[in-house]
Simulated scan of single mutants.
Amino acid sequence: MREVLIADDHPLFRDALKRAVLQALPDAALLEADGVPMLHVVVDTHPDLELLLLDLHMPGATGFSALVHIRGQHPGLPIIMVSAHEEAGIIRRAIAHGASGYIPKSAPVETIVTAVLRVLDGDLWIPASVHGAGLALKPDEAGAAARVAELTPQQFRVFNMIAEGLLNKQIAYDLGVSEATVKAHMTAIMRKLGVSNRTQVALMASHLAIEVDSVPSEVVLSNH
């Protein structure tokens, strides 16, 4: 049975994606995640996972950070990004970071079905409106992606909490660990990222941000 993971924090859109995937793969076993912690658990415990549909704005991630981290930890897993963003530059950056496809949330079910089947066949799928997927990432962004990919899942969670501006005390509370443990994670994170303080950690995360003026509101598939 083919396992497909749908990672999106909006239940209604997860349901819409599930229906679309089942049209493409009627016998698929569908798994779900509503945030980065659950995303890591599901991916790590399902080695035969064949496809990940990943929301670009997952809770617990900054911009493309979830994409680059999962790609680093599981390089053989095809990932289709799903987002309300339809800007060509964002789509090209997603592909440059290793996504195998990009589906706008405004896409009809038929388009999602096509994208899923194409990616599972080993092809790249992007909207027809985006001419050419080639893009050379800026050196700072490429460097940040390579370093973030080396973090462990727990280090990745701490990394994104730092990017959100949380203090060690808040991070410790949210993770249910001691501040000493958080400091140990901080030391390891800074070593892997090649930086010396939390401000530089946050700067590293900013290189993976979407960098648009506003985040569009989520949209539900028009024919659901």
Rank of each mutant, 00 (worst) to 15 (best):
R2I: 14
I6S: 01
D9G: 13
H10S: 10
P11R: 02
P11W: 12
L12A: 14
F13Y: 14
D15M: 12
V21Y: 09
L22Y: 03
A24Y: 03
A24Q: 04
L25V: 15
L31W: 03
L31T: 02
E32S: 12
E32V: 08
E32G: 07
V41C: 12
V42Q: 14
H46K: 08
E50N: 07
L51C: 11
L51H: 02
L54I: 10
D55C: 02
M58R: 10
P59I: 00
G63L: 11
R71H: 14
G72E: 01
G72F: 01
H74N: 10
L77T: 00
I79R: 01
A84W: 04
H85G: 02
I90L: 11
R92E: 01
R92I: 00
A94H: 03
A94S: 10
A94Q: 03
H97G: 09
Y102C: 05
I103R: 12
P108A: 10
V109P: 06
V109R: 12
I112M: 08
V119L: 02
D121L: 01
D123F: 14
I126G: 02
I126E: 02
G134R: 14
L135Y: 02
L135K: 06
L137T: 08
L137G: 05
K138L: 13
K138A: 14
P139H: 08
A142H: 13
A145L: 12
T152C: 12
T152Q: 07
P153Q: 09
P153F: 06
V158I: 11
F159W: 13
A163F: 07
E164L: 14
L167R: 15
N168D: 15
I171P: 01
A172F: 08
D174S: 13
V177W: 02
S178K: 14
V182P: 00
A188I: 00
I189V: 04
N197G: 12
T199V: 14
V201L: 01
A202L: 07
A202W: 07
A205S: 01
S206E: 11
H207S: 13
A209G: 03
E211I: 05
D213Y: 12
D213G: 13
V215W: 05
V215T: 11
S217N: 12
V220Y: 13
L221N: 09
